[in-house]
Simulated assay, not measured.
Amino acid sequence: MYQYMIVDVFTDTPLAGNPVAVLLDATGLSTDQMQSLAVETNLSETTFVLPPQGTADVRVRIFTPTRELPFAGHPTLGTAVALAHLRERRTLVMETMMGDVEFTFQRDGGRALTARMRQPVPTWEPYEHAATLAEGLGVAPAEPVVYAYRNGPRHVLFPVRDIEELSGLRPDLRVLSTLPDMSAFCFVGVGTHWRARMFSPAYGVVEDAATGSAAGPLAVHLARHGRTDHGRQIEIRQGVEMGRPSTMTATAWGQGDRFDAVEVAGAAVVVGRGEFLIDGVEGGGPA
């Protein structure tokens, strides 16, 4: 039997934010079984906690319904909060395929915990299929160049003109599904307040309620283009159109096009517990 928690991430309200299923000890599961369990939960991501291979406290593997991701934002933050609920922690170091990710926690006496994580600093380049992406979204980008950022997953930051245009997006998923290894992170805002939506048939996610791994790249993008200051925290609201409102904060420190650190933070709340009864499934073994 494999125990799990369901955590709603980037919210302090149950049944809002972006849910993640966290298998608290996945020792003995094969990669194929992890992928099958990610299909079974039918959430945007499912995580699997394992003993660390290095000096971190835990190792975590992250699966969408279609693939494994080397890093993702809301699943890692939700996993960290789940583990902090099991044993009171002030800090946690999590081993991912993109390196170790550090978390610090803030408790407010309620069910929710706020976690801050240092993300991998992304790389970026102009996106080579911007015209096809615009066709699939049904709108032209509000900036002359569309950039793809990678910090594990590849997020294409697609600027739109106003909140009405953002909320009115009805993407053609047949077109978006032809674009491999990417999510379309559509955004609009000014100063420290931003709104976003994310679509990614390539990652098995029609629309995502909160994309923490894109929040850090957005802070980097805005600082690079002088739309916010380096080291200034921004707030990102996502999931509004899905009825799953989420709030993330992100900060990027550096100068010009050089970035030294990226931090993303938000609250999360445990909303469910259970167990998968899969002992003895053929093909099991060490992950």
Score class of each variant (00 low, 15 high):
Gln233His: 05
Ala210Ile: 02
Glu165Val: 13
Asp162Trp: 08
Leu166Gly: 08
Trp194Leu: 11
Ser183Asp: 15
Ala215Met: 01
Met242Val: 01
Gln238Asn: 04
Gly231Ile: 12
Glu207Pro: 06
Ser177Met: 08
Val188Trp: 11
His230Cys: 05
Arg232Tyr: 00
Ala215Ile: 06
Glu241Val: 02
Ala214Arg: 06
Gly239Thr: 01
Ser167Ala: 15
Leu179Tyr: 08
Ser200Ala: 15
Leu179Asp: 05
Gly168His: 12
Phe187Glu: 02
Thr178Phe: 00
Glu164Arg: 14
Glu165Pro: 08
Gly231Met: 12
Leu166Arg: 03
Arg195Asp: 11
Val240Ala: 13
Val190Gln: 15
Arg244Asn: 02
Pro201Glu: 07
Thr211Ser: 11
Thr228Lys: 02
Glu207Ser: 05
Gly189Lys: 09
Phe185Thr: 13
Arg227Trp: 13
Pro201Ser: 01
Asp172Gly: 05
Gly243Cys: 06
Leu173His: 13
Leu179His: 04
Gly216Leu: 03
Arg244Ala: 00
Ala196Trp: 03
Gln233Val: 14
Pro159Leu: 13
Ala196Leu: 03
Ala196Ser: 15
Gly216Gln: 09
Thr211Phe: 00
Ala196Cys: 11
Gly226Ala: 11
Gln233Ala: 14
Trp194Ser: 10
Phe158Val: 13
Gly212His: 01
Pro201Thr: 01
Thr178Leu: 11
Val160Glu: 11
Arg227Cys: 01
Ser200Pro: 06
Leu157Tyr: 09
Asp229Thr: 11
His230Ile: 08
Leu218Asn: 09
Ala219His: 05
Val205Gly: 09
Gly243Leu: 07
Arg237Ile: 03
Val220Gln: 05
Asp162Ile: 03
Ser200Gln: 04
Leu157Thr: 12
Arg237Glu: 14
Phe185Lys: 07
Ala202Asn: 10
Arg237Asp: 02
Val220Arg: 11
Asp181Trp: 10
Gly226Lys: 10
Asp172Phe: 02
Ala209Cys: 08
Arg244Gln: 03
Glu207Gly: 05
Ala219Tyr: 09
Val205Met: 12
Ser177Cys: 11
Arg244Cys: 01
Val175Tyr: 01
Ile234Gln: 01
Val175Ile: 15
Val156Met: 12
Arg224Gly: 00
Arg195Cys: 07
Ser183Leu: 12
Phe199Arg: 05
Ala202Arg: 08
Ser167Gln: 12
Ile163Ala: 15
Leu179Arg: 04
Val240Pro: 00
Val220Cys: 15
His230Leu: 09
Val160Ile: 09
Leu169Phe: 09
Ala202Glu: 07
Glu207Tyr: 00
Phe158Asn: 12
Met242Arg: 07
Leu173Val: 08
His193Asp: 15
Val188Gln: 12
Arg161Asp: 13
Val206Cys: 02
Val188Ala: 03
Pro171Trp: 04
Arg232Val: 15
Ile163His: 12
Arg237Trp: 10
Cys186Gln: 03
Arg174Ser: 15
Gly216Cys: 08
Leu218Thr: 03
Val205Ser: 11
Gly204Cys: 10
Gly243Phe: 05
